[in-house]
Design a protein around this nucleic acid. Structure first.
Lengths: 344, 344
DNA sequence: ATGAAAGCGCTAACAC
DNA sequence: GTGTTAGCGCTTTCAT
């Protein structure tokens, strides 16, 4: 009785026996080694197909001490910007034969620590952290692993290793400068109030710093609460801000989702945008390019961050591990649309 | 010289030697086996920590012939509905100690076939297909694997195995009935024209069938082109539809994104919604609950699909594999909001 | 161009 | 409660 008929797993040696070669030759045929005669190779692959043989990556990984895994964390995959980054990363790594191991941290450093500890047991060859916040133990685990680490969506002062990101603070500075150039002076900010979203905090800090640079008041801040932040929270925050500061003439949302929530609220309250209130967001979400009026924003190049990270990981795993940690800065781009009004 | 100092990997046997027990005891301690004396266990875990030992799941998987992987495909993770499903699935499976292996098919059956062939080499314990389209070879590979298969987001006539989904056609029927009850008669549909998006096609077919049931004209169809479908395409499709059929009094989008694009276009063209034109979408995206006016839609319960799938996979892998394939139907819910107007 | 032997790090099975 | 032995399915290494 054949192994398949017995219900047993079909191994390389089964294919080898059926063809009349050794397991080694089958192994070589499967990895495309030229040293196998083409006819032998074809015979092997045909027989493998016929027997329903499926290569066992687990066994190969154990022996080779290489898994082809890249561990990836995101606060949540259910956020368009992170999803774009993960998609580009997945595709770029797939081209190198690498498979991502994805985990969500839910914006929680403790959960990040837990998922990273689990992922490390899978013996990934690199770790990509998308906008996380790391406990001391997380940092220790990662350093002890000796793996290449890539931090995304930020430019940390004290990076673990490599970085592909941008300055969240500076990106909001771009928006403030633009709004000021359009004559706005009483500018508010929605969000950036949660400890669980450091990048949001940095954007708010960048907002305050930019206003101060222009000699403007910096107290028009409305909290949004805990991430994930929602459009509805943006609408509520706008209400709260206008209740306290009715003379506000421009508002920046910590993300386009928040800004869009504010825009919808303006439409409901018949507040003219940009006539009475200018609006701007962050992240260049699809919605901002389509809503009426279209939303001024900052493009953080979410996909490009993922693509660059994939390329970096590919290079690092192909032996290019000399030299200091890379720090790839992807400068955000101001996208001026209708909600910030015409120049005055 | 210690293994760590030599730069060599630290194995269980290294921990065992350091503590003065056998590798088996370390193994038991790590899996929480009660038969290890608590003090021994503590000593082992402390020593492991001290030595920087990291459990090697690859070796354990090979030996146990269990990986804890679940292969998951989506057309693209960069779509809010699929991202919600994947997030719920990831979290549900994590509770069972299972790790997802995610791959995007890019709405392409050939790519789906390729990624599934790759994923199967990793020896997943189950395969979850989110809204795919399967080539004969894909079906053959999956059947030959003998693994539990779960198809999501659909109720296929000829399922591979288990199903967690809903009728895309019937869900649009809900919207048509609702619009008709509000006095709309000349109803159009945006999208559902691509072979690469079978669920979109089913929604359009459901639209045509529902109109026919009401004795209404069924020719107000505007194409959107290839997925992923965008808000901007929704705006353009609305233009095309109104150019050919200016008397249209209601429009359904194949998704909320499309419907929102149409809504934005109406705002730009000063078409009153719902006064002149009623609008509805599909998928209960966040945007529909926030935009002004708020969008009538159908909730397909994306998260619940993921959660149910996780539970099903968990049950199947915990021995509950008797009985026929499960077919879990999650009925979509009509969500009536402002864009479909008041009852007449 | 192909094969034989050894071993990757863990755990099932059995022993005590 | 703990230890010994063998082996998971592949590939490294060395041989021919």
């Amino acid at each position: 009785m054949s192994p398949a008929a017995r219900g047993a797993t079909i191994r390389m040696s089964d294919v080898a026996r059926a063809v009349g070669v050794s397991a080694m030759t089958v192994s070589r045929a499967f990895k495309g080694d030229d040293s196998v005669r083409p006819e032998t190779r074809d015979k092997i692959l045909r027989k493998a197909e016929e027997l329903g043989y499926v290569f066992d990556a687990t066994a190969a990984n154990l022996r080779q001490n290489r898994t082809g895994f890249v561990a990836v964390t995101v606060p949540t995959i259910d956020s368009a910007n992170f999803a774009q980054t993960v998609r580009a990363l997945t595709q770029g790594l797939a081209r190198e034969g690498l498979q991502i191991l994805l985990a969500n941290t839910e914006y929680d450093p403790a959960q990040e620590e837990a998922v990273i500890a689990q992922l490390l047991r899978r013996k990934p060859e690199a770790v990509v952290l998308t906008g996380g916040q790391h406990t001391p133990r997380t940092r220790q685990l990662l350093r002890a692993s000796k793996l290449p680490i890539v931090q995304l969506w930020d430019l940390p002062d004290d990076p673990l290793d490599h970085v592909v990101g941008f300055s969240n603070a500076a990106s909001i500075g771009l928006l403030v400068d633009h709004l000021v150039s359009r004559g706005r002076r009483r500018i508010g900010f929605l969000g950036g109030d949660s400890d669980r979203d450091p990048r949001g905090r940095q954007r708010r800090a960048g907002f305050v710093a930019a206003l101060a640079r222009h000699g403007l008041e910096t107290f028009r801040l409305a909290p949004l609460g805990e991430p994930p932040i929602s459009m509805a929270a943006g609408a509520a925050a706008l209400d709260a801000l206008l209740a306290r500061h009715p003379d506000t003439d421009a508002v920046i949302g910590v993300s386009d989702l928040v800004a869009f929530g504010a825009l919808a609220e303006c439409q409901r309250r018949r507040i003219a945008v940009p006539g009475t209130l200018a609006l701007a967001g962050f992240g260049n979400y699809e919605i901002g390019a389509v809503c009426a009026p279209r939303l001024t924003t900052v493009d953080a190049h979410a996909e490009r961050i993922g693509a660059e990270a994939a390329q970096l990981v590919g290079a690092l795993l192909n032996g290019d591990r000399s030299g200091p940690p890379r720090r790839i800065e992807i400068p955000p781009a101001l996208i001026i649309r209708e909600t910030s009004g015409e120049p005055r």
